[in-house]
């Protein structure tokens, strides 16, 4: 069963009508309804509010890192563990082939269904998860493998154990090491890019966001609770923080927006995976033209160019 959001009610109605017309084998009605659906879709999705985009970014059917990995990678193997404490299942690492290229994909994985959500800790990594990502990235550097990071987390896990083992240190270490990692890297926010937990695998030669993804310093709920003193003000907070892909591209804080299907990646996972793969390969081909040194300098300059201020 597909899940429909509040603003998708009219679409849900037409989808149901199409399904019942199909059962009756009424091809004529199906044709008419499909045209109607197309119109309704463009009407609904053209003027989405920021909050509606956030809802799409958190949509329960939205493809997660492993969904993309299964669609993209061929002959893939999963590698586990930080070799120190625990295999954090909120971060996954796969090696495999995308269009003749050997690549490594490191992604934050949310779970689907209660059992999997608990197993993946709702996509909130612990320090060992970030250390696993760093270990894998270093391995990619050693074997000259390009890395694709898939960012999708509400944030790094806030817990007692996480603090004991140095959540801050783990994130900080990643920011430091990834900025000088000598291999081609692309980071794509596929759903939620929540705070430092997202940035820890969000430092790369290129950073892009899927059309309906968000990237912010804190979750809108957290922001509303702190600044508005009222968690219910999340809609206002979402709008104020400017966290959608288009907004961030406008501020030059990210490099590109990947145009996933207009109805959202969850409606057509294969098409979404295709545009993601195309973007990754195109980015690698462009990076092939640069020397390692040029590419690294460019990455450094890009990272250091971020900020808004004036000097009087």
């Amino acid at each position: 069963m597909a899940t429909y959001l509040d603003f998708e009610k009219s679409i849900k109605q037409i989808d149901e009508d199409i399904a019942s017309a199909r059962i009756k084998a009424d091809n004529h009605a199906v044709e008419i309804l499909e045209k109607e659906l197309e119109k309704e879709v463009s009407k609904t999705y053209k003027n989405l509010s920021d909050y509606q985009k956030l809802q799409l970014a958190r949509h329960p059917d939205r493809p997660y890192a492993i969904d993309y990995i299964r669609l993209l990678l061929q002959d893939s193997y999963e590698l586990h563990g930080d070799r120190a404490f625990k295999d954090d299942l909120a971060i996954v690492c796969y090696i495999g082939y995308i269009a003749e290229r050997k690549v490594m994909v490191i992604g934050e994985q949310k779970g689907r269904g209660t059992k999997n959500k608990l197993k993946r800790n709702f996509g909130m990594p612990n320090p060992e998860g970030y250390r696993k990502a760093l270990r894998m990235a270093k391995m990619a550097e050693k074997f000259d493998l390009p890395v694709l990071f898939l960012v999708d987390t509400p944030g790094a896990y806030p817990g007692i154990g996480a603090e004991e083992r140095g959540q801050s240190e783990a994130i900080a270490r990643n920011l430091y090491e990834m900025s000088k990692l000598n291999t081609k890297s692309v980071s794509v926010v596929i759903g939620e890019g929540g705070s430092g937990g997202a940035l820890a695998i969000g430092v790369a030669d290129r950073v892009a966001m899927m059309r309906y993804s968000v990237f912010s310093v804190i979750s809108p709920e957290g922001c509303a609770a702190i600044l508005w003193n009222d968690p219910a003000k999340q809609e206002s907070a979402t709008k104020a923080m400017k966290i959608t892909a288009d907004d961030l591209l406008g501020f030059d804080l990210i490099d590109d927006v990947i145009e996933e299907p207009i109805t959202g990646a969850h409606r057509d996972k294969v098409a979404a995976a295709k545009v993601l793969a195309d973007y990754f390969i195109k980015s690698l081909e462009e990076m092939d033209q640069l020397s390692d040194e040029d590419r690294m300098n460019k990455r450094y300059e890009r990272i250091c160019s971020m900020g808004a201020f004036e000097e009087k």
Partner: peptide, 18 residues
């Protein structure tokens, strides 16, 4: 094959598996 230096995989195209 994956980590070795000399091995190159041929005949791979971008095929999104449905």
């Amino acid at each position: 094959k994956f980590f070795g230096k000399n091995y190159k995989k041929d005949g791979y195209e971008l095929k999104i598996k449905a």
